[in-house]
């Protein structure tokens, strides 16, 4: 990256380190941090939406909807999340191709699942075989996002369902006594009051989501773990500079990155918690009121 790096005689000490850390492969490594942050930024709101939907379904008066919602929220309780990560990515991929296959090649006669193979007609491949490499990466990333959102949506649904139950019943009854309809009670009373009860759980979930991002590596996305292994290893495909096994240092770097993310999030979430407690009928809100008075 720097012109001085072209001259090998100057490569010593700090100067060497600077040049080493700015090679093309390292710039790819730094970009993969952006991948992780993008995943966090996209997944968090989508998972929240999934969780909200799941909690609403679980509260529904309609039996079938309620069973779907409860099933979704119960999904993550007994089974390790990593099983879902591995399962959904393949299942979604095959599901999409199967639907495309049904739509585009109705007169294809060969069985799709033939022995040890899963074969759809060429037109049903997603993304198409001719697509550029970048689209394959984008597709892989999108699958990962949907998988994360599905799993974390289930966690969020648990939290939000609990929070909706925690809103004092008297508040809802008062709203009903004023003649509000069910929808109005939900929108104007339940949802605004719910957040303060949901926040501790959701904060926890956010910290968990940060800590789950290395699993992207298992889903085949070239994330920070992938690059740390490639750049640190002594004999890998990203091998550009002969060095012994430095993976330990790269992983120490990742450890520091995650610890920093956790710390920053904790500070920010504590502030948010104080902010949201303002004027609420909870112990924290009461403490704020007393401190001000």
């Amino acid at each position: 990256m720097f012109s001085s790096c072209a001259d090998p005689s100057t490569l010593q000490g700090l100067n060497w380190l600077m040049c080493y850390l700015t090679t093309g492969k390292h710039l790819d490594f730094y970009w993969s941090f952006v991948t992780v942050l993008t995943l966090l930024a996209v997944t968090a709101p989508v998972a929240l939406a999934f969780g909200f939907g799941g909690a609403m379904l679980a509260r529904s008066h309609h039996l079938v909807l309620r069973i779907i919602g409860k099933g979704y929220t119960a999904m993550v309780r007994g089974v390790p999340d990593i099983v879902f990560f591995l399962f959904f990515v393949i299942a979604l991929d095959q599901g999409i191709e199967w639907v495309m296959h049904q739509a585009r090649c109705p007169d294809w006669t060969d069985p799709i699942r033939n022995g040890l193979e899963f074969r759809v007609c060429p037109q049903a491949k997603v993304p198409p075989n001719s697509a550029a490499q970048v689209w394959h990466s984008v597709y892989g990333f999108a699958l990962a996002v949907v998988t994360f959102a599905l799993v974390f949506g289930a966690f969020a649904a648990n939290v939000i369902y609990g929070a909706m139950q925690a809103v004092p019943r008297a508040q809802l009854e008062t709203a009903e006594a004023y003649g509000m309809s069910q929808g109005q009670v939900f929108r104007r009373v339940l949802v605004p009051q719910m957040w303060i009860y949901a926040l501790p759980g959701l904060s926890n979930l956010w910290l968990i989501l940060i800590k789950a991002t290395p699993l992207l590596f298992l889903l085949g996305v070239q994330d920070i773990v992938y690059w740390a292994r490639e750049l640190g290893g002594a004999k890998t495909s990203a091998f550009s500079y002969p060095h012994p096994d430095w993976r330990l240092y790269y992983f120490l770097g990742l450890l520091v990155f995650y610890l920093l993310m956790t710390r920053i999030s904790e500070v920010f979430l504590t502030r948010l918690q104080n902010r949201l407690s303002h004027g609420q009928a909870t112990a924290a809100g009461e403490a704020q009121r007393k401190a001000a008075a």
Partner: peptide, 12 residues
């Protein structure tokens, strides 16, 4: 920190 990273780090 993620357990996943802890495993990697410990192994290395």
């Amino acid at each position: 920190s993620p357990l996943f990273i802890q495993f990697f780090l410990a192994y290395e």
